[in-house]
Structures are given as C-alpha cells and as structure tokens.
Nucleic acid binder design. Structure first.
Lengths: 226, 226
DNA sequence: ATATTACAGATTGTCTACAAAATGGTGTCG
DNA sequence: CGACACCATTTTGTAGACAATCTGTAATAT
C-alpha cells in the first residue's frame, strides 16, 4: 500500500516535530500500557507496517526508546521490550528512593515558594483524578509531581539519571496502578511531603519520600513475584 | 570516491561487528580525548566524509553516544559534543560517589574472593602503567577497576546508571589526567579499598571510595573553573 | 537417540539517490 | 533599528537493493 507521509504530520497532536519522535510516543505507550509485552521482539518490518513509515524513522525511534531503557537491543538480533525480574524491580525502587532522597536533600536552604505552589496544584489535580476514578490522569499527575521535584534540584546529572530510572520503571508502575485498587495513599504521601517542605523540614520530607517509594516497592515486587 | 565496506571489517581490531559500533568507538575517542571540543556540532555529512560511511550508521552511532551522554541532541538541530559547567562536574562527582558507595554497601555479607583477586590484578597493571608513564593505560585500568566493582553488585539498574555517569564524566577525567601530574594517588586509594574489602570492612571501603572520588571532584572542578 | 552439520528463510545492517522540510543567517525595506 | 522575506545549509523522510548474520529445521553422522 502507498504510504501517506508529510500530510500525516498534520494529524499529530502538537509536540512531535519529526516522525521519529511521533513513533516514540506511540511505541512508548504500547510498552508502558503492556500492549507490547516484556521480552516481545520489536521487528522493524512489523512496526513499519503497523504505523506506515519507512525503516529510518523506525530504527531511530527504537534507539530513542533504548535510551530511556524501555527496550533492549542486541546487535543483529534487534530490539525487544525490556523485561524485569523481581530483583530488578526491588533495585529500581531502592535506587529511586535514594536518588529522590538526594534531590530533596539538595533543596535545603533554598526558597521553595513556587515549588510548593506547583506541588499543591499537582496534588489538587491528582485528587480530582482520584475522585473521578481517572486512572490515566492519576498516573500522569503522579509523574508530574515527582518530575517537578526533580526539576527543582537544578542538578543536571541527577535529573538525567532520574529521568532514566523513572522511564524504566514506568511499565511497572502502570501495571501496579492497574492491578491495584486505586487508593488515596500516594496522594496522602504527596500531601505530607508538601507539608514538610512548607515547614522547611527537609529531613522529614526526605524520609516521607523514601518511605513512599519503598512502600510501593513492596507492592510492585509482589506483583512480579513468581 | 568508492567506499570499501564489508572488507573494511577485516581491519577492525576485534569486537565491533557493525559499522555503527565501530564508528561509536572512533567518535567516542575523539570526544573523550578532546579532539572534538565541547559544544562542537557533529554534522552528519562531515562524519560521513571523515569516516567514509553512509547516513544510517552515522546517525545510529550518534544515537548510541547520546545514550552514553557524551553528545547532546536537539530535533532538527542535530548533535553536539556535550559541554560541562563547573556545577555539572561537581554534581557528577557527588553522584558517582553516592552511587559507588551504594554499590560497595551492597557487597556486605557476600563472598568477595574473586572480586578481590581481580581488583588486585587491575591494580598491578595500573601500577605498571604508572611506572612506564603510560597515561592511556593508566586511564583505562582505572576505569576497569571501577567497572569491576560495579559488575559485582549484580544490580542492573544501578549498573546501567553508573555506566551512564561514568561515560558522561569520561572527558572530564581524561582531561584531569592529562593536565595533572601523574600521581600514585588513585593507585594508593585503590589499594586501600581492596585492603578494606579483604578485611571485609565494607564501611571503610565505602568511605575510602567516596573520599577517593570526592578528592578528584575538587581537582576536576578547579580545571573547569573560569 | 544424540550431537553435529547444512541449508533456507527471516531479519538486521548498509548503501545510493532523491525529495521535503526546518534552521540560521543575510539582506532589504519600512 | 526592527520586521520581514529570501537563501544556502542541514536535517529528516522515503525507496529499493543487496550483504551479512541469525534462527530454526532438516538431514547426516556418531
């Protein structure tokens, strides 16, 4: 079949300015939501056919996903959806807890007004998602909360590393949210973290954050057990 | 000009089984040694011309370097050699110290015989490089020492993150080595670390490692000041 | 029966060539 | 002096072809 190309771009929501990055968005979603399953091979031809693009952008986008850690790659054997062991997941959450702890620690002695305001907003939106039982929104807002925290650090190396760690754990957290009853727990944690920050009690905020992440660690590890 | 290709592969040292990964090696070296300077644009055509390959492998290899953090990328603006601020460098070393500290901490209660033997070997080779004033060798062995330590953790997420952090700091450390009188200091640190591990004194090994890295932080930050 | 080898199909890696869009700079005009 | 149109350069997308390698299966030898 002949492929429409340039014109395709007009249908794209807003941001993706190249076909590759558009493809990244589509593939990423498939992986995070579990439509593409862990270990599944991602064959170039299949993806070409599925999204109607040529090989260049497909390979490009797979490389981009590789950078985020969502896919694995072996020379001449191609790409696969990343798979996780229970140990991986435990290590992942431990690492997140440590890193996010560092980020919060680095906030000490800085003006935090705008940060706190933004976090409040995020929490409000997250609460709204909870009330309307909007899973996708809840998931997204949760990520926004943590991203906002990281952005505040102004620490480029740690930000980059956190982006990676968060991206890798995305499918795990999505599954956790899906297969668990939607609870106010994350929301409550977030509100306590903001409260600690508002009192400039960095140590407490840090502890609360780590407790928050490590609680989820247990839940996630259970999901992947056996 | 006609390009030799398949046959090219025969000239390649050993490992690179694809042109892309071969290119990565060449480009990586240029960046780490400073032949390509921070901020310098990496134009596809230039690289094609320089190494006589086509677009595919060039873009592929640049993406791989991006994954290691050695280059920066902006859509439709292409790739550049990554550049560093003093703050970046301080943050980078702090992060390395924390992460490598975690790795060593995770070694507690495990059998360490082979690890210690390997580290000993690495140190011996590093000492030889020092004696013959072999900078390149010294640099490489130093990396091998730290890599070996990380590998022992069996912690995939932390390993991946450390690979990234080490890769990003590679040009900084190369420059530090180049512009500093070659001293036994790193070597001495390594030997003390191994000695602590041999006594199963994990806490001491951890402290020594962090001190080692944070000492270099100061030196590196000085290099990039002003 | 087990292990090895040989082969065919599928998949990735690379090249050439052309076309389309965006970027950054230049110069003109108000 | 600033806004706007123009242009060369560069990146991005597509197509088709062929080479190299991997995978799994079937035939062979032990």
């Amino acid at each position: 079949m002949t492929k429409q190309r340039r014109t395709d771009t007009s249908r794209i929501p807003a941001l993706p300015r190249t076909l590759s990055s558009h493809l990244v968005g589509l593939l990423r979603r498939q992986i995070i939501t579990g439509a593409y399953k862990p270990g599944q091979p991602l064959r170039e031809q299949d993806i070409e056919a599925e999204f109607g693009s040529s090989r260049g952008p497909v390979r490009e986008s797979l490389r981009m996903l590789l950078q985020g850690g969502l896919v694995e790659y072996a020379e001449r054997r191609g790409f696969r959806v990343r798979s996780y062991t229970v140990l991986d997941i435990e290590n992942l959450y431990d690492l997140r807890a440590s890193l996010e702890g560092m980020v919060i620690g680095s906030l000490a002695g800085q003006p935090l007004e705008t940060l706190i305001a933004d976090l409040h907003d995020s929490n409000r939106r997250m609460a709204a998602c909870f009330d309307t039982n909007d899973l996708e929104g809840y998931f997204t807002e949760n990520q926004i909360f943590h991203d906002r925290l990281i952005a505040e650090s102004g620490n480029r190396p740690i930000s980059e590393v956190m982006v990676y760690v968060n991206e890798v754990s995305m499918p795990v957290r999505y599954r956790l949210l899906r297969e668990t009853l939607l609870s106010r727990r994350s929301l409550d944690y977030h509100e306590r973290i903001v409260a600690h920050l508002a009192r400039a009690d960095i140590a407490a905020a840090r502890g609360e954050t780590q407790e928050h992440i490590l609680y989820n660690k247990q839940a996630a590890a259970l999901l992947y057990a056996v």
